[in-house]
C-alpha cells in the first residue's frame, strides 16, 4: 500500500463546538438566474461533506462563496464561527489562510515551476527560503510527487497537476480544504489516488473539507474507506464494516440551487427521490 509521509505540524487549536463552515439562508442570483435559493448547511470540524449535483447546479458556487470570491445576495456565511458575509478584502485574506483550495484543473500558475507553485503562499508571506524549501518538499512528498519539483506545469499529466494543486493548497496546514471536482476527467486509478489523499487528510490530519463531485466512485471511496497508520508510519486504507462505521463523512445533494438531500451515504441510497435515484444509478 501507499507509503507516504504524513503531515506532522500541529494545527491551530479550535473549539470543536463551532462548526467549520455554516451557511444560513444563503441566496445568490446572477441577473435573473437564481444560483442558490436560500440554502442552509453545516460542516462540522473534521468532517468531510461530499457535495453532489449535476452540472450547473451551484456546487462550485458554494466553494467560491466560502472563499469570498463571490458575494452572497442574502444570508450569512460563517467560516470558523466568523461571519464573512460582509468582510472586506483584508479580512478575507486573513480568513483564506485557514482554507486550502483545490481547483478543478489544478489551476497551477503556468509561468511558475512546481516548486514555486507550491511555495507560492509562503513566498508571498515573506517566509525565508530554507523554511519554504523544507515545507515544499514535505508537501510534495505527501502527494508523492517529489521527483517533479523542478518541472513546469505544462510538463505534467492531468493527475499530477491536481496533486500539485493539492500540495499547494495544503501548504501552511490549513484547517479546511475545499475540493472543486478534483477528479473530473481523470482515469479511475488516478481519481482513486486523489480520493486517498482526501481520506488521509480527513482521518490522519483532522481537516474539515468540502468535496464537490458528480462521480459516484468518489462517493464510494470517501464514504466507506478510512486511513490508518501502522507502527512504521505506513498508511493503509480499510473499508468500514464490523469494526468501524464512518460518521465523519456526510453527503449533500444540490439540484437547481436547492439542497434536496443532506445526510449519510446510507440514507442517500435509501432515498425515494426519483432524481437522487437516477443520479446514483445513472438510470
Amino acid at each position: 500500500m501507499l507509503e507516504t509521509e504524513t503531515m506532522t505540524q500541529p494545527r491551530t487549536s479550535i473549539s470543536p463546538v463551532v462548526p467549520a463552515i455554516e451557511f444560513r439562508d444563503v441566496e445568490l442570483a446572477f441577473d435573473d438566474r437564481v444560483i442558490l435559493d436560500g440554502i442552509n448547511f453545516t460542516v462540522r470540524r473534521g468532517e468531510t461533506k461530499i457535495v453532489l449535483g449535476g452540472s450547473g447546479s451551484g456546487k462550485s458556487t458554494i466553494i467560491k462563496l466560502i472563499l469570498g470570491l463571490l458575494r452572497a445576495d442574502a444570508g450569512t456565511i460563517l467560516v470558523d464561527g466568523e461571519d464573512i458575509t460582509n468582510a472586506d478584502e483584508q479580512e478575507l485574506t486573513e480568513m483564506r489562510k485557514k482554507i486550502g483550495m483545490v481547483f478543478q484543473e489544478g489551476a497551477l500558475f503556468d509561468s511558475l515551476s512546481v516548486y514555486d507553485n507550491v511555495a507560492y503562499r509562503l513566498a508571498e508571506e515573506g517566509i525565508d527560503d530554507d523554511e519554504i524549501e523544507h515545507e515544499v518538499i514535505r508537501m510534495l512528498r505527501f502527494v508523492d510527487l517529489e521527483d517533479a519539483i523542478d518541472k513546469m506545469p505544462i510538463e505534467l499529466s492531468g493527475g499530477m497537476r491536481r496533486r500539485v494543486g493539492i500540495a499547494r493548497a495544503l501548504v501552511g496546514s490549513p484547517s479546511m480544504v475545499l475540493f472543486d471536482e478534483p477528479t473530473a476527467g481523470l482515469d479511475p486509478p488516478t481519481a482513486r489516488t486523489i480520493c486517498e489523499l482526501a481520506i488521509k487528510l480527513r482521518d490522519l490530519e483532522g481537516v474539515s473539507s468540502i468535496f464537490v463531485t458528480h462521480e459516484m466512485n468518489n462517493l464510494r471511496y470517501l464514504s466507506s474507506e478510512y486511513a490508518i497508520v501502522d507502527g512504521e508510519g505506513r498508511v493503509f486504507f480499510e473499508e468500514e464494516g464490523d469494526k468501524l462505521c464512518l460518521i465523519n463523512t456526510k453527503v449533500m445533494m444540490i439540484k437547481q440551487g436547492d439542497i434536496i438531500f443532506d445526510g449519510t451515504d446510507e440514507e442517500l441510497k435509501l432515498s425515494n427521490d426519483p432524481y437522487i435515484h437516477r443520479f446514483i444509478t445513472g438510470r
Binding site: L67, L69, T93, R96, F103, Q104, A107, D110, Y120, E124
Partner: peptide, 18 residues
Amino acid sequence: GSMVVSQQIDAMRALGTS
C-alpha cells in the same frame, strides 16, 4: 484572460494575493 479562464486568478486570490 487565460489566467481567468484557467482559474489561476481565483487561485491567486484564494492563496491570499491581490
